[in-house]
């Protein structure tokens, strides 16, 4: 039986084949290479590389950055999506475009933007120097850049979801006497939890993996302002391939965990979504 969208068998095989070959070359092979290179000299050198003081400090810094920027963007994303989907106000479409801005600007430019604002010759540079505050080439700068880069993830996930859900349930809750917080806590949050978790996951993966913007503001001070992606680059430039790939494999591992969690969430999400209709 021919369906309206039926393509010839050969074409189907060819299209699927191309997709698989592409995946193998551009995703699977590099992944294998990363782990292969990391473990080339055996498990011992791998562990040494990962537990070197500089590597440990890079891991710690990366975790710290994620621990600050992800919660910030979680709160921001929820607040922005709530405002955009539940209220009418002037400038709403501008806010929506602004939220997307970090996606459309090159990360390097994002980093430079903060240097221009807070660097020694930047707008606030002299004032910061006077008060002995350091932002650029220090942890606060890295946090700022990361927050900026990862700020669309949660909001972009929630806005379509909350738009679709409308505001009937919230109106029902307040008509029954619930406060704004009770409404959010008991009605809105349970309705968006899977989407929210998904957004947080993507946000976290990017926060830990961001290179460009962080590279501009970090100053690459070993043991102080080096995040994992920056540390990988330094080791690689020093021809320490095992070390570079060992740290890189940790990041790749994080990506794999994110991927699995994302798949599980998508599955639960759909299950939940279809059960409610």
């Amino acid at each position: 039986m021919r369906r309206s969208t039926t393509e010839s068998r050969a074409l189907q095989v060819m299209l699927i084949g191309i997709a698989l070959v592409f995946l193998a070359f551009f995703l699977l092979l590099p992944l294998i290479a990363v782990f292969g290179e990391a473990l080339k000299a055996g498990i011992g050198p791998f562990l040494d590389a990962v537990s070197a003081p500089d590597a440990l400090s890079a891991i710690k810094l990366t975790l710290l950055i994620a621990a600050i920027s992800v919660p910030l963007n979680l709160v921001f994303g929820v607040v922005a999506s709530w405002a955009i989907t539940k209220f009418q106000f002037p400038g709403k479409s501008i806010l929506i475009s602004l939220i997307d801005l970090p996606f459309s600007v090159s990360p390097v430019v994002s980093g430079l933007m903060f240097v221009l604002l807070f660097g020694a010759n930047g707008w606030f540079g002299p004032w910061l120097a006077e008060h002995d505050l350091k932002i650029i080439f220090a942890v606060p700068g890295i946090v700022l850049a990361t927050v900026f880069i990862t700020f669309p993830f949660v909001a972009r996930e929630l806005i379509p979801l909350m738009m679709e859900q409308g505001k009937d349930e919230e109106e029902a809750a307040i008509s029954l006497g619930a406060s704004g917080w009770q409404t959010f806590r008991h009605v809105t949050l349970p309705n968006i939890r899977w989407g929210l978790l998904y957004g947080v996951l993507l946000c976290n993966a990017r926060a830990m993996g961001e290179f460009g913007a962080v590279s501009v503001v970090s100053g690459h001070i070993r043991g102080e302002t080096n995040t994992m992606p920056l540390h990988v680059e330094i080791l690689y430039n020093e021809y320490d391939f095992v070390g570079a790939f060992a740290v890189a494999s940790l990041l790749a591992g994080l990506a794999l965990v994110t991927l699995v969690a994302k798949t599980v969430l998508e599955w639960r999400f759909n299950l939940h979504g279809s059960a409610s209709h």
Binding site: D168, E169, E171, A172, A173, I174, S175, L176, G177, A178, S179, H186, V187, P190, N191, S276
Partner: peptide
């Protein structure tokens, strides 16, 4: 609406799904 003590039944019921 919360202070007016009115019962409102929505067209699509707006029951809390979870």
């Amino acid at each position: 609406v919360g202070e007016r003590q009115v019962g409102f039944v929505f067209q699509q019921y707006a029951l809390f799904k979870h």
